[in-house]
Design a protein around this nucleic acid. Structure first.
Lengths: 171, 171
DNA sequence: TTCTTTTAATCAGCAATACTGAGCATTCTT
DNA sequence: AAGAATGCTCAGTATTGCTGATTAAAAGAA
């Protein structure tokens, strides 16, 4: 009997329209990466939406939980977002009193961002639902595979954002 | 001596600002996924930019190479894009004569999309540079790890887009 | 058949988004 | 002390993703 190549992959042969992922895309990393991110982010956004905020805001706030007192420029660099986008997020969060801006003592140009008690409570309140959402997304993977995926992605991001070797330094 | 937990990960302790990825984000899948996708897509877009198109257009065109004659609605479902977005991409590609629209013989409402010879040449011309770009992005991973990453992502997308179990069926 | 409902594509327009450039304040460099 | 660079803010712009309406065709119900 003619066994299929790559039987492990969940991709469909070219004539199977019922299957959402055509076979060719199995080796198109950009596509699966973009698609996976889209699906996960949509789920996370749905959880956060009642606050009127998005997953990006939560990322910022969780970053502040880890490193209170970062400036907006530092946050932009860490999150990979534009300076003005970071500012808008800081506006959104400050308006809801989840973070507070303060002039930096060492550099009076810079804004020091830190969590308010409400901000910390906001994280604590949302965290479980977000972890559930992530777990549902990761359902088809074993615990070992989840950890591996995480590690591989971290290595890729680490490599891509290291100043010396950014493949094409976006001038 | 106090050895660090999770020494394999490339994440930084909270007080190391030189490291782009703070430690806490190592277990924040949404963040690394979004960041990895952003970096890769930026690289791919840079390669495609001279054509005035984007990675999404290339994804559509590669899909057509695999499955000529798809309708716009089918493409939307496979790519996960909005119908109107797919239409706009089809406009862009048709304007450059890379794909052609044709009324479907079996359903005269539907547009059948297929590659033109120029479209096929466009793929052939861009493919090597795109593969290089992807290879640079994947540099820190061994061949086995690359295949594994691909497979894990495909499984996740497959699971997230299957109609029955979409975690929260976005109503 | 005829009537209603659904689906495909198109188009106009809206809302959110990302970014550019200017401006001001402050810090760094020399 | 002067000039260059940096951090933030703001206004404007370009892009994006989507909603809703429209037309045409197909599918289903009566």
């Amino acid at each position: 009997m003619p066994t299929r190549i790559r039987p492990r992959t969940a991709c469909a042969p070219a004539d199977d329209l019922s299957n959402p992922i055509p076979e060719e895309f199995c080796d198109h990393l950009g596509f699966v990466l973009a698609r996976a991110r889209l699906e996960l982010i949509r789920g996370l956004d749905a959880v956060i939406q009642p606050s009127g905020l998005q997953a990006r805001h939560f990322a910022l706030v969780r970053l502040l939980l880890q490193r209170p007192g970062l400036s907006q420029a530092q946050i932009s660099a860490l999150l990979g977002t534009d300076r003005t986008t970071t500012m808008k997020m800081a506006d959104d969060l400050e308006r809801r009193a989840l973070v507070s801006r303060k002039r930096s003592a060492t550099d009076r140009r810079a804004n020091t961002l830190s969590l308010t008690p409400q901000g910390e409570r906001w994280i604590a309140r949302l965290q479980p639902a977000l972890e559930d959402e992530e777990a549902r997304f990761l359902e088809p993977l074993s615990p070992g595979e989840r950890a591996l995926l995480q590690e591989l992605l971290v290595r890729l991001v680490q490599h891509a954002t290291t100043p010396n070797n950014p493949n094409n330094q976006h001038e």
